[in-house]
Amino acid sequence: MQVLSVLIPAYNEAATVETILTKVAEATLFPEISLELIIVNDASSDGTEQRVAHWISANPQVRARLVSHPKNRGKGAAIRTGIETATGDFIIVQDADLEYDPNEFTLLLNPILQGHADVVYGSRFMGGKPHRVLFFWHTIGNKFLTFISNMFSNLNLTDMETCYKMFRAEKLKSVSLQENRFGFEPEVTAKIARIPGIRIYEVGISYYGRTYAEGKKINWKDGFRAIWCILKYGAFKG
C-alpha cells in the first residue's frame, strides 16, 4: 500500500477546515493508495487549532496529525513543516478553504502511478472542469507569472500558481525551500525544474474560487513577491 501525504496549511480557516478535512478523508482514491493528513496550524487566532483537534479526535479511523506553529510564519513555512513531517510516497498541498476538490487527487496521481511523471500540476486553465468566474486581473496576473516562470524554467505550464501540485515525495524532499509566504509556488517550480531528468505533467482540474469577503488572503503584494521569486530562483538560480 502506497501513501499519499496531504499537507494542509491552515491560518484562520475555522469556518471551513473541518469541511475540507472531511472532504479529503472521504476522497475517492485508487485501491492501492491510502491517505495521511498533515494539518499545519500557522498560529491561527480564530479557533482553527481547536476545530482540527476536535475533528481528529472524532475521526480516529483517519491517519491525521496536527502540527502547530507558535507564531505565524506564512504558507510557505507551513508547507515546509508539512514536507518534513510527511512520511508518504507522494505529497500534495491542499488549502484549508474549499477552492479545490480532493476527489480530483486521482487525476494528478494517475500519470505518476502509470510511470510517466514525477510531478503533476493541476491546471485551472485547461480542460473542461468547472471554474468559478471571478477576478479578471487575478487571471491576467496568474498567466503573466506563469509566462515569466516558464521563460526561466523552460517549461510550458499553463498554471504555475496552482495549489494542486503532486510530487513523488523523494523529489520534493530533495529540494531545499526558503520562501515563507506565497513565494512557495514559483520557488518550488524553479527548483523542481532543475532536477536532472525530472518528468513534469499537467492535468486540468476544477476551481471553486472564493472572494476576499469569503476569506481569500493573497493580494497584489504577493504578486510582486512572486515576480521577485521567479527572478531569484529562476534567473539567478538562488
Rank of each mutant, 00 (worst) to 15 (best):
M1T: 13
P9A: 05
A10F: 01
N12W: 06
N12H: 08
T16K: 02
T19V: 14
L21D: 01
A25T: 09
T28H: 11
F30T: 04
F30C: 04
E36W: 06
V40L: 07
V40P: 06
T48A: 06
V52S: 06
A53C: 02
A53N: 13
H54P: 06
S57I: 09
A58V: 11
N59V: 08
N59S: 11
A64Q: 07
A64M: 05
R65F: 08
H69S: 13
N72E: 14
N72D: 10
R73Y: 11
R73D: 15
A77W: 08
A78D: 02
A78G: 00
T81S: 14
I83V: 11
I83A: 03
F90A: 00
P102W: 00
P102A: 04
F105Y: 10
L109P: 03
I112D: 04
L113I: 12
G115C: 07
V120D: 08
V120H: 10
Y121D: 04
G122Q: 02
G122F: 05
R132N: 11
W137A: 15
K143L: 14
F144P: 07
L145M: 13
I148R: 09
N150P: 07
D159N: 12
C163Y: 10
M166N: 00
F167R: 00
S176A: 12
L177V: 00
L177R: 00
Q178I: 05
F184I: 05
P186I: 02
E187S: 00
T189R: 01
K191C: 02
R194F: 04
G204D: 10
G204W: 09
S206Q: 05
G209Q: 04
T211K: 04
T211M: 08
G215V: 04
K216A: 12
K217V: 10
I218M: 11
N219V: 08
G223A: 15
G223D: 12
A226P: 06
W228A: 15
Y233F: 14
A235K: 13
A235R: 13
A235P: 13
F236Q: 09
K237H: 13
